[in-house]
């Protein structure tokens, strides 16, 4: 555990160490040709910076399936990149943002040539989400817009949560690829909690992501099921488990919900799309329960 923690701490320190001079320099001169190489940094960038200052975003954000909540019209006008160093150099950027786990070779190479590459760690909770928005605001010279975006996010989240019916959080069967389930302290679980539900893996006492055997799942009594995933098309072996007869019997008759993948891929304001769907489902579930209760 400690062995895994130390490099993370060092990495974080390094990232912050690199950011400080950048942030100071940008107070006078804001970057005008920003390139983003990661789906999640794409969204933050588009929400904080005028499209004219964005030189390119990752090709993923140009796909309708992945375009972040309410940003399709901006993404459509921007150029895409595949995270190759050559493409980024062609754009002659003055700031490059990337994820810490994707395009790592390109990031290291660009940094070595002398470009400013700021990497963002995947968000593990809503505090990380706010911190990453703030970080993006600082390096792009838009700290005020970042604070505004965080305030808007918190306001909308509070509005949605105010609609939640009282009582314990029922179980949401978020059975995904290969029974790879999100337990406590994962971003996905925080989103599900915010929408008024518990994840299956949380209910079973897991934290982090786990492959959970089917037989362990069959004991739980979910009140809502995620309606497969977009992974069913194109087909994947990983979704075969959803067709297991035992699982189908367990899930028969339980209400279903379809949460588009793009609402939960990144720890960004797009998650409000998922929270909204989950809150609606929770209200419906409470109404059904109220109907059944007087018996």
């Amino acid at each position: 555990m400690i062995g895994r923690l130390i490099p993370r701490i060092v990495a974080t320190l390094l990232v912050w160490g690199m950011m400080l001079p950048v942030a100071a320099a940008d107070a006078t001169k804001r970057p005008q040709r920003i390139v983003s190489m990661n789906l999640c940094t794409d969204e933050l960038l588009m929400r904080l910076v005028e499209p004219e200052r964005i030189a390119s975003i990752s090709y993923l954000s140009l796909q309708p399936l992945n375009a972040p909540l309410g940003l399709d019209h901006i993404a459509r006008k921007l150029k895409g990149n595949n995270g190759l160093a050559e493409e980024v150099l062609m754009a002659k950027p003055d700031l490059i943002v990337a994820g810490s786990f994707t395009t790592t070779a390109a990031s290291a190479l660009l940094r070595r040539i002398g470009y400013t590459v700021v990497t963002f760690e995947p968000e593990n909770n809503f505090d990380d989400l706010r911190a990453n928005i703030r970080k993006m605001g600082e390096i792009t010279g838009e700290p005020a817009r970042a604070e505004q975006l965080i305030a808007e996010f918190d306001k909308r989240l509070a509005e949605l949560q105010a609609q939640l019916p009282p009582g314990d959080k029922p179980v949401f069967a978020d059975i995904g690829v290969n029974n790879y389930l999100a337990g406590k302290d994962t971003f996905y679980a925080y989103v599900v909690n915010a929408g008024g539900w518990r994840t299956l893996a949380e209910t079973l006492g897991y934290s982090g992501f786990h492959n959970i055997p089917l037989e362990e799942l069959l004991d739980t009594r979910p009140a809502l099921v995620s309606n497969a995933t977009p992974w069913a098309n194109p087909p994947s072996m990983a979704t075969e488990n959803l067709k297991h007869p035992a699982l189908r019997t367990m899930l028969a008759g339980i209400p279903q919900i379809l949460i588009p993948e793009r609402y939960t891929t990144c720890g960004t304001p797009s998650v409000l799309g998922a929270v909204e769907l989950l809150v609606e489902a929770r209200k419906a579930q409470a109404r059904e329960q109220a109907k059944g209760a007087p018996k």
Binding site: P7, R8, V10, A11, T104
Partner: peptide, 9 residues
């Protein structure tokens, strides 16, 4: 796995 590659490419 250990995260060393993140800290030091």
């Amino acid at each position: 796995y250990t995260g060393f590659s993140l800290a030091f490419p």
